[in-house]
Nucleic acid binder design. Sequence first.
DNA 1: CCGTACGTTCGGTATATCCTGAATATCCAG
DNA 2: CTGGATATTCAGGATATACCGAACGTACGG
Lengths: 170, 170
Amino acid sequence: MDRMTAIFVDGVGAGAGPSGLVSQLQGRIFGLLYLNPAPMSLDDIAAQLQQSKSNISTTIRGLVEWHLVRRVDVPGSRKDHYEAATDFWRVMQEIFERRFRWMVRQVMATVDETRNVARSEGKRPKSEAAFVDARLDHMNQFFTTLDAGISAFANGQPVTPESFQQKAAR
Amino acid sequence: MDRMTAIFVDGVGAGAGPSGLVSQLQGRIFGLLYLNPAPMSLDDIAAQLQQSKSNISTTIRGLVEWHLVRRVDVPGSRKDHYEAATDFWRVMQEIFERRFRWMVRQVMATVDETRNVARSEGKRPKSEAAFVDARLDHMNQFFTTLDAGISAFANGQPVTPESFQQKAAR
DNA sequence: CCGTACGTTCGGTATATCCTGAATATCCAG
DNA sequence: CTGGATATTCAGGATATACCGAACGTACGG
């Protein structure tokens, strides 16, 4: 691997790691594939990045799932070959749609569940119960709006911050 | 801590952890504060979540930095007290502005650096050099557009996915 | 100027995560 | 079927992260 590639691979890895979206190694793999004109096999990648093939195999699976990397067929070779995806937009949609949305749904489900338990646990001062109710409503409203915003964004519709602010304000 | 609060705290923690934005414990702390009508001291929080005070102290700092939790003054007490923020919108802006943007900048800097090195390392086949050039351009263009989109979003302007798609297409 | 009630820092330890090499599973050519 | 080439799985070791309790620093009340 020449110096240029090394710098790119390291830089992308350094950016990817702290982002929380993909791991540093995943960033490095993507960087390597992105600068390589031809698809690469697992052995190629492992050699270039000085990692075991098993580690590359497991790590690259995540990249394929996020549609950051594609598995392509190379005629005449029995090895799996991979190339970097270039439609970053699609990748962003994927991330918003799956990871972000999962958290949103998780929180909304929690709010529901909490409401139910709050109702069955009637032994609470009235003022406190009202406070909790208001808080749960507030959170539910914000995340509902956020959920709709993510849908809109994923479908190519514009997202305006104002709609969030107003609907989420209390 | 009653059952209702426990469910809420656990649920929010479970949603926060995998999101990659804040840790599970940070989610739990926030959940606890969010349902509590009065600000809580470090000892209160530590007792409720069954964690050491030192751990709460260090962990809550991140929450304050992301503006998810505020330190408030409670007259008559020398302890620090904390309460949950409710302007989630502001928090989202903060996260986009700081964490996401940091990655964007990191990648753009890497592309620049890589271009420089590529220029000084002239000993490359012409076709390959052209390929790398095109790839770097492509990435730079996408991230530049993304950077602008984040700015727009943070300033309250609408963000349309189409603008990304078209500008980022090649 | 003490003493006390805090928050924070720090060294060590437990826990989770990453990574590897060997073992296993899978596929295909002959 | 068999053999070889390949990907994947797995158990263990290495490395990083989370967490705790004690020591330290700090500010306030007396």
